[in-house]
Each structure stands twice: as structure tokens, then as C-alpha cells.
């Protein structure tokens, strides 16, 4: 009889359909034995990586194109170089027609500030002004004092800054904003404030069309012949830029 039971149960087999449906069920319930989980994880990872790359890209773009300092060059042409944290010129602004002409004649974008400034200072346009004895004002604006000193030192050590009539000075970022609100470049704003102290009736509009030499002459006329601007440091030559520390002209 035990053989009969054995023979009887021997004929009982799992149906193929049952095996197949079980196989499919397992694939479904285990998300294809964890493969879907893996691919999901990979997808999530790739998504995060993409977001990180895009974010880093935007952050990098923002970081690169956000000016943290500015250099204003004022003669009669008034131009301002906006500099990013990597010392590269990211934009150039002209504050008058002569400035516009100068900016259009030189491609200064993405150059390091020393090279850009040298290009401007050695341009025919500016050299002509210097030869005529015009005052050339280079004003650096940046909040970080150490950086400001470094930039002034670097500019001051260049040959173009050692010419007669060239002065350079530094101011903080707040000053930069005030100048823009007044519609003046940094150099002219500095001269405007100096003049305003002596002549309170003067307005930004009064001086915006004047050359730096004309503004300085007005200041001198109020101060008297023997007085000098605090930013004009007299070295071997009169009215040259000061060199602080171990400044080197870092023209690349």
C-alpha cells in the first residue's frame, strides 16, 4: 500500500503554468531580483550628479562673472574695469563718450587686470593725454584691504603707473556703490568729493564732463598752489603712484 501511495503522489506534478506564474511573481515582487532597485539607485545617483554638476556650473558661472573689485581709469575718458575673484576683467563700463571710444577700441574682457590696465594706459588715446600733461587717476575699489593693497602695489609697480601725472588709490566697495549712485566713475567720484569739501555747491553733473586735470585744477584753485591731494604721492617724479610693500607688476 505504501507503494500505492507513492505511485499516486508520483503522478502529482506542479503545472508548468504554476511554475511560470510563480517565476513571474518573484520577478515582480523582488523588482527583478534587486536589479530595478539597482537601476533606480543608479538613476537617483545620476540625477544627483547632474544636479550637482548643474549647480556647480551655475555657482562657478556666478562666481566667475560676479565682480568683486573694480579699477577705474579716469583722464577725460572714464572707464571702469570690473574684476572677478580670479583677477580677470569680466566687464568694462564707459562713463563718457571718450570712455566709450576707448572701450570700443580695446578688447579687455577676460584679461587679467594688470594686462588690461597696461593695454589701456599704453593705448595711443591715453598716451596722448599723458603727453599733454593731463592727470590720470587709477582707483581700485575692493572691500578686502589686503587685496586692495596687493592690487595697488601691483599696479603701482608697473611702468605705466610711474609716469608723471598718474595717481592711484584704493577705496572700499561701499565707495564704489556711492560712486555708481552718483553716476560717476570711481576716480571722478573721489575727485568730486574732494572738490565738494571745498565747494559744497558742486554737483556730480557739474564735473561729469570735466577732465581729471580740470577737476584737479579747480581743487587746486580752492586749496592754493602748495597743497596736494592725499592720494597723489610724490616720489622721484611728481604725481606718481606709490608702491607699497614688495609690489611687482604682474602683467601676464
Amino acid at each position: 500500500m505504501s507503494n500505492k501511495i507513492k505511485n499516486a503522489f508520483d503522478n502529482v506534478h506542479a503545472e508548468e503554468a504554476l511554475k511560470q506564474s510563480t517565476g513571474k511573481y518573484l520577478i515582480e515582487k523582488t523588482n527583478n531580483y534587486g536589479k530595478k532597485y539597482f537601476s533606480k539607485a543608479v538613476k537617483i545617483g545620476v540625477s544627483f550628479a547632474c544636479v550637482a554638476v548643474i549647480t556647480a556650473g551655475f555657482a562657478g558661472y556666478h562666481m566667475y562673472f560676479t565682480p568683486v573689485s573694480a579699477i577705474s581709469l579716469d583722464v577725460n575718458p572714464s572707464v571702469e574695469l570690473n574684476i572677478n575673484r580670479f583677477d580677470r576683467v569680466v566687464s568694462v563700463e564707459a562713463y563718457n563718450d571718450e570712455g566709450e571710444e576707448l572701450v570700443n577700441s580695446e578688447n579687455l574682457k577676460y584679461m587679467d587686470y594688470s594686462s588690461a590696465l597696461e593695454k589701456l594706459m599704453t593705448s595711443d588715446n591715453i598716451e596722448e593725454y599723458i603727453e599733454k600733461g593731463e592727470a590720470v587717476s587709477i582707483t581700485v575699489s575692493v572691500d578686502n584691504e589686503k587685496k586692495r593693497d596687493e592690487m595697488i602695489s601691483s599696479i603701482s609697480s608697473c611702468e605705466y603707473a610711474k609716469q608723471k601725472g598718474v595717481t592711484c588709490s584704493g577705496r572700499n566697495k561701499e565707495y564704489w556703490d556711492e560712486a555708481h549712485n552718483a553716476g560717476l566713475s570711481l576716480g571722478k567720484y573721489k575727485a568730486y568729493l574732494e572738490l565738494k569739501e571745498l565747494d559744497p555747491s558742486v554737483t556730480p553733473d557739474d564735473i561729469s564732463g570735466l577732465t581729471m586735470r580740470e577737476i584737479h585744477d579747480r581743487i587746486q584753485s580752492f586749496k592754493g598752489d602748495n597743497d596736494q591731494s592725499q592720494d597723489i604721492v610724490t616720489g622721484n617724479n611728481e604725481n606718481t603712484c606709490s608702491v607699497k610693500g614688495n609690489g611687482k607688476c604682474n602683467i601676464k
Binding site: 502529482v12 506534478h13 506542479a14 503545472e15 504554476l18 511554475k19 510563480t22 517565476g23 518573484l26 520577478i27 527583478n32 531580483y33
Partner: peptide
């Protein structure tokens, strides 16, 4: 999946 398929082949009759 290979282990599961092997088990189905080996033990599905017993389970059935």
C-alpha cells in the same frame, strides 16, 4: 534569479 529557478525546478512538485 538562477537560485530561484533552480529551487522551482527541484521543489515545485513537492510543494504542489
Amino acid at each position: 534569479e538562477q537560485e530561484a529557478n533552480r529551487a522551482i525546478e527541484l521543489y515545485s512538485d513537492t510543494v504542489r
